[in-house]
Amino acid sequence: MATIHPYLNFMGNTEEVFNFYKSVFGGEFVNVTRFSDMPGMAANLPEAEKNQIMHIALPINKDVMLMGTDALESQGHKAVNGTAISLAITPDSKEDGERLFNALSAGGSVEVPYDKAPWGAWFGMFNDKYGIKWMVNFDEK
């Protein structure tokens, strides 16, 4: 079976965002590549974009890698946060779900507080402080 890894695009603050996610999930980056690491590409970029993140990867567990990049305005790229996608987390316990919910939602906006849901799971939904929509769902069954 194929594995799907979320790949997030940001407008120049990918490093800040991923350091925040690292503080929540722990672990170490397995890759941090800047546009300046790609000589052919960097030569055509404005100085302000050369140090931005071309690719970053943070393992969440043995099966899931959270990855990202900075969208380059000089290349016509634009990252728009919105409601087209949500990242769903299935924690190992109710308590772990509460910890992840509280840590990731800090500074963001909570849409549904982490609480017992009608389908029997512990669930919460929020936008983190970087505009990414998350759902936490722990099913006790």
Rank of each mutant, 00 (worst) to 15 (best):
A2V: 07
T3V: 07
H5Y: 04
P6W: 15
P6M: 14
F10A: 08
M11D: 14
M11E: 15
N13A: 00
E16I: 00
E16T: 02
V17T: 13
N19L: 13
F20D: 05
K22I: 10
V24T: 13
V24A: 08
G27Q: 03
V32W: 08
V32A: 02
R34E: 01
R34G: 04
R34C: 04
F35S: 05
M38S: 14
M41P: 12
A42W: 12
A42P: 14
P46G: 14
P46F: 00
P46K: 02
E47W: 01
E47D: 15
A48K: 15
A48Y: 04
E49N: 09
K50V: 01
I56A: 03
A57V: 01
L58P: 12
L58I: 03
P59N: 07
P59Y: 00
D63Y: 13
D63R: 10
M65N: 15
L66D: 05
M67V: 00
G76R: 08
N81H: 15
N81V: 14
T83K: 15
A84T: 10
I85Y: 05
S86I: 01
T90E: 15
S93C: 08
E95N: 11
E95C: 10
D96V: 07
G97N: 10
G97W: 03
E98C: 07
L100W: 12
F101K: 10
N102C: 07
L104T: 12
L104E: 09
G107P: 10
G107I: 00
G108N: 07
S109R: 07
V110P: 05
V112A: 15
P113F: 01
P113S: 12
Y114P: 04
D115P: 04
A117Y: 03
P118Y: 15
W119F: 13
A121D: 14
M125Q: 13
F126G: 12
F126C: 09
F126V: 00
D128M: 01
K129D: 11
Y130A: 14
G131Q: 08
K133S: 11
K133R: 10
W134L: 05
V136P: 08
N137T: 06
N137V: 14
F138W: 07
F138G: 08
E140S: 10
K141D: 11
